[in-house]
Every structure is written in structure tokens, then in C-alpha cells.
Design a protein around this nucleic acid. Structure first.
Lengths: 242, 242
DNA sequence: TTTTACCCTGTAATATCTTACAGCTAGCTA
DNA sequence: TAGCTAGCTGTAAGATATTACAGGGTAAAA
């Protein structure tokens, strides 16, 4: 059975339940006891889109949420905040500092002995991560994780794609029909760089009125109530990258 | 030698030349004769960049550019335009239609018999793809490609990360010592949501003057020239998560 | 005790943004 | 031909942000 045969079923899942079952199955075949997949799309503050497929022990997940460990979790920082493209294997170099070490030790009590986290980024401002863990605690377990790290990363990619297809089957208005013109992006970018209307006008060789016009149009498309709102949304949605 | 030992050298490359050599080496070890990696950022106008690492035959690359094959290349559409997260193996299902088939057949004449393309997306609007090809033309070659598809995807991830570090010379976007106070974050968050100073003042039960004060302090810390700039920076730096 | 960080407030001139009105050109497509 | 999109411009009142001046407090650390 090839890797593709292993992952393809994910794309056929029509429901979140099926996705959970299939992922559990695949993770098990790779030798992992636990998994958690999370994706978040910073479309806006008012309409954030977040999706979590939890294959972690409920008790640990509850504790994680209760203590707001997301803020100190280095794997979260690596995959979501810093938006790195490469996986991270859980070791002491990663979990350094008192808070992180404490969190890591606690997680071991729930059966998360060894593991790794895999980032995936979609092209629409969506950042996701898949964490895979095993209750085996040995050097051999670590070596096995390393040996299948490619497959694991691929699983993350497929899972992300599958999730997008299910969750976005009724895609939010903000993500689909959001297309800014070149000029609108240009104005937004310079505005995000701290330029005033007049300065942008000089840069683009147009009048200040025109800059206002484009920024207004961009804001209307994104449902922004003012210039700051428009900039925040455009960045969060990945429409511009200052 | 584990996969990680194989890929880690990419992150140590300090120059584009070293990156090319290392990638050629790794691709060779995976059994590929040719590779091409390209990344493009179409969301950034103030800091745009496009980067191509070519390990394809020069003649084919020249022909590709000359005929603007990018427009009909289904692998490009898959990875860059549609921004899919999963790899695509070159087969007849992918290269369908007269134009695509013709292009595919031409590419075979330059030694690109079998291959696959792997998308990678960074978190900053950057879309990249790595294509790997072999001059072997057999079912066995195809099977081998499938068998190492995980490693290949991982290579794409590492190559992307390595490229980012070189091309962007490791942007100091995430300043670790940058710390905003609770009030500053609070004001920034509401401002990013489109609230005016007066509205934020009502929400926080303080005067508008105080809101101005906090936003000013936050801006100064981040070297922002105005409110919009401060919001853009705070989001980009992950200091606030709207 | 002094220092430091954080929080809060006031006035006022000036700069900038927002919004409403109104109208132009060019290129493409049905 | 008409309709559409993208781009561009003008005026003007009112809302909001920026800046510089001034000052108050608490709590914890040195």
C-alpha cells in the first residue's frame, strides 16, 4: 500500500466525523496514539474561523485550554505564530524555559511521551498545524518518528486539504469573492507602512483624492469601517503582506 | 542517515549557489535528475520578490519562458494559482487538454520523463512549488516517485524555509524583546477592529486621551509612524491576534 | 527610599481621514 | 450599441488622529 493510498481516503471524507475516524486510523498506522489538528483563519476579529480536530486525551486538552497553554506552547509559536514551513520534533531544545518545560512535563502524564508538530499553510491566510504523539517513550520511538517524518508532513498536507474541502464547502463570503484590484492593494500596502494619503499619492503619482477612493473601495469590499480596519483585515486575510 | 540529516544542510546554506548545490545533491539522492523551485509573492508590493532555483535543463527552461507555458502548466495552476496543499504527480489526468499535453510531450524531449510537483505556502502570502523529475521512464520509476513522496514534500518545505532565510535575510519581524502592555494590546485590538479613539474609550471606560496615550506608546515601541502602521506591525509581528 | 513601570487625564493647534456630492477616460464584452 | 470594470479627479464639511505641552496616581522592584 503506497502512501498515496493511505492518504487519499482523507479527501473523500464528507463529514468531520469521518475525517476524525480516518485520521485516527492513519495516525495509528504511522505508529501514533494521539493527534490534534488545528487550523485558524484570521479573516477578521468579528468573524474568526477556527477548526480543531482533537485526537488528544480529553483531560489534557481541557487542561491546555484552561491554562491557555497556547500562549506558551513553542510548537504553536513555531507553526502558527511564526508560520514556519518545516516540522518541529518535540525535544528539550524546543521546550526550553520554565513555562514550556512545565507544560511539556505535564503533557507526558497524559500519554504524550514523544511527538512532533507539522505546519501547513494554505494560500488564503489560513495557518494550520498537526501534532502527532506516541505514548512510547524510548530512543527507538524517537528514531521511528524521524524515519517517517516525511509521511507525517504529507499527512498534515492532506488533512489540511481535506478539512478545507469540508469546512469551506459553504465558504465564507470573505474568503471567496474577496478580490482587490492592483491599485487597491498598492494603496493598502503603503497605508500599512504608515504612509498618509498624501504620501501615497506622491508615490503612486496620483492625487490624494484617488488614494482615498481606492482605500474606500477596498474597505467596502472587506466590510471595513475605516482605514485601520481595512488594513487589519487585508493582512489577516493574506491579501497583502507588509 | 535520517531524512532530517539529509535536509538540515539546506538551512545552513548562506548563498543561493550553496542552495543550488545542496538541492541538486539531495534531489540526486532521492533519485531525481532535475528539479526546479520557484516562489512568488503577489501580495507584497512594497517588498515584492520572485525567486527561481533552476535545476532543469536550460533549453527546456528557455522554451518554457519563451512560450509562456506558465499560463497552461497544470502543475503551476495546482500549486500557485489554486494554492492546493497536496502534491501532484505528473500523469495524463493532470496534463489533460491539447495545450497541456503538447507541453508535456515537449518536456519529455528534454529528459523530464516522470516527475511530481510539491506546493509549499508560507504564512505571508508567498506561494512556492518544487518540481522533481527523472529521466527514467518506466512504471518502476513512477512507483519509486510515489514511494518517496513524503520525503519529497518535506524537501519542498525545507527548501522553502531555506530560501526564505536567504532571500529575506532572516527578517527581524518577530522581535522577541518587543512586549506590549495589556492596555496597549487592548487598544490595538479594538483599533484594528475599526473602532475610533472615542469608541475604544467607551469600551475600556477611560477617556479618549488615555486611548491615544496607549496607542502612541505602542506605536513608539514598534517604531510605527501612525496608528495604521502600528496595527499592521502588531499583526505582522504576532503581538496581537485578531 | 528612590526608581521604575504602568496607568490615567487635560488642553489645543494642526494634520489627516471620512463622507457626501458629482463627473471623467479607457478597455473589454455581450 | 450598451453595460461593465478599473482607474482617476474635484469640492467641502465634519469627524478623527497626531502632536506638544502639562500633570496626576499605584505598585513593585532596587
Amino acid at each position: 500500500m503506497s502512501d498515496l493510498d493511505l492518504f487519499e481516503p482523507l479527501l473523500s471524507c464528507g463529514t468531520v466525523e469521518a475525517l476524525h475516524t480516518t485520521t485516527t486510523n492513519i495516525a495509528g498506522q504511522l505508529g501514533f496514539d494521539h493527534f490534534i489538528y488545528g487550523v485558524q483563519v484570521n479573516t477578521s476579529i468579528t468573524r474568526p474561523y477556527q477548526f480543531i480536530l482533537n485526537g488528544y486525551p480529553k483531560e489534557w486538552r481541557a487542561r491546555y485550554i484552561e491554562h491557555n497553554y497556547q500562549k506558551i506552547d513553542p510548537t504553536y509559536a513555531h507553526c502558527i505564530t511564526k508560520k514556519q514551513a518545516i516540522p518541529v520534533i518535540w525535544n528539550n531544545q524546543v521546550f526550553k524555559g520554565d513555562d514550556a518545560t512545565k507544560m511539556r512535563n505535564e503533557s507526558r502524564e497524559f500519554g504524550l511521551q514523544r511527538g512532533a508538530s507539522f505546519p501547513v499553510h494554505g494560500g488564503h491566510g489560513d495557518a494550520a498545524m498537526l501534532s502527532l504523539a506516541t505514548s512510547q517513550d524510548s530512543c527507538k520511538a524517537e528514531q521511528e518518528i524521524v524515519s517517517i517524518i516525511g509521511k507525517s508532513q504529507l499527512l498534515a498536507c492532506y488533512l489540511h486539504e481535506a478539512t478545507q474541502r469540508i469546512v469551506l464547502s459553504k465558504p465564507p463570503l470573505l474568503l471567496t469573492k474577496m478580490e482587490l484590484t492592483f491599485r487597491e492593494k498598492e494603496c493598502l500596502l503603503w497605508a500599512a507602512e504608515g504612509k498618509t494619503g498624501g504620501e501615497i499619492a506622491d508615490i503612486l503619482k496620483v492625487t490624494e483624492r484617488t488614494v482615498t477612493f481606492h482605500l474606500q473601495n477596498a474597505g467596502n469590499k472587506m466590510g471595513a469601517s475605516n482605514r485601520q480596519h481595512a488594513i487589519a483585515r487585508a493582512i489577516s486575510m493574506g491579501l497583502i503582506a507588509p
